[in-house]
């Protein structure tokens, strides 16, 4: 009988795999709050997208709230949210820092030229190092960092005007956001 148990191994492995896949199906990355919320924002210092000799980093924004938006030209949802980002930038509520993730510099530069540039500065992260520190699962993702350098909110998926007004703006305008 013991001998026959090994024939169960494939079925058992498969059952485990199905368990994971089921989990993956129901735990939409969009619904899981980032473990980074409430923690200090991981610092990064990367080449600027526009100019490789300049650097863009978290230290540039110390002491004021800012938004980090992860995007790439390969991401169709990023195109969809771009209009919203432009509108947000026009309100001048907070600076938006772009994190151009796993992208091609030339393509990304053209994208901003064609669609307009909502970003205060864009960090170029072709290898995804900073994105890993920030727990980025896919693009687009948008983080809100408070003035004391804590991640206070994270959005997975495209930004919309109502999400911005209902979820982000109250946090920015709250005392914690400005502190």
């Amino acid at each position: 009988m013991k001998r026959n148990l090994r024939f169960l191994i494939p079925a058992a492995l498969f059952a485990a795999l199905v368990g994971f896949l089921f989990f993956g199906l129901y735990n939409d990355p969009r619904e899981i709050p980032s473990p980074l919320i409430g923690k200090p924002a991981p610092s990064f210092s990367l080449e600027s997208l526009a100019n490789p000799s300049r650097r863009v980093g978290t230290t540039d924004y110390q002491g004021r709230p800012y938004v980090v938006n992860v995007w790439g030209t390969w991401c169709p949802e990023c195109r969809r949210e771009h209009e919203v980002l432009l509108s947000i930038a026009r309100t001048r509520a907070v600076p938006i820092v772009g994190l151009n993730w796993k992208d091609d510099r030339a393509l990304a530069q053209r994208w901003l030229k064609e669609l307009g540039d909502p970003y205060d500065a864009v960090a170029f992260d072709p290898e995804g190092q900073a994105a890993i520190d920030w727990g980025v699962y896919g693009a687009p993702e948008t983080f809100l960092v408070s003035a004391d350098g804590t991640i206070v909110h994270k959005l997975i998926g495209p930004m919309t005007w109502s999400i911005w007004q209902e979820e982000f703006l109250p946090l920015i305008n709250s005392p914690g956001g400005r502190s």
């Binding site: 001998r3 026959n4 024939f7 169960l8 494939p10 079925a11 498969f14 059952a15 199905v18 896949l21 089921f22 199906l25 129901y26 939409d28």
Partner: peptide, 27 residues
């Protein structure tokens, strides 16, 4: 996700069925 759930069910039926057969017959 609805499509994903359907394929997962299908995967379970097809592969699970075949592996159950295997567990039964292979010894």
């Amino acid at each position: 996700p609805a499509r994903g759930l359907f394929i997962l069910g299908f995967l379970v039926a097809v592969v699970g069925g075949a592996l159950a057969l295997y567990t039964w017959r292979a010894p």
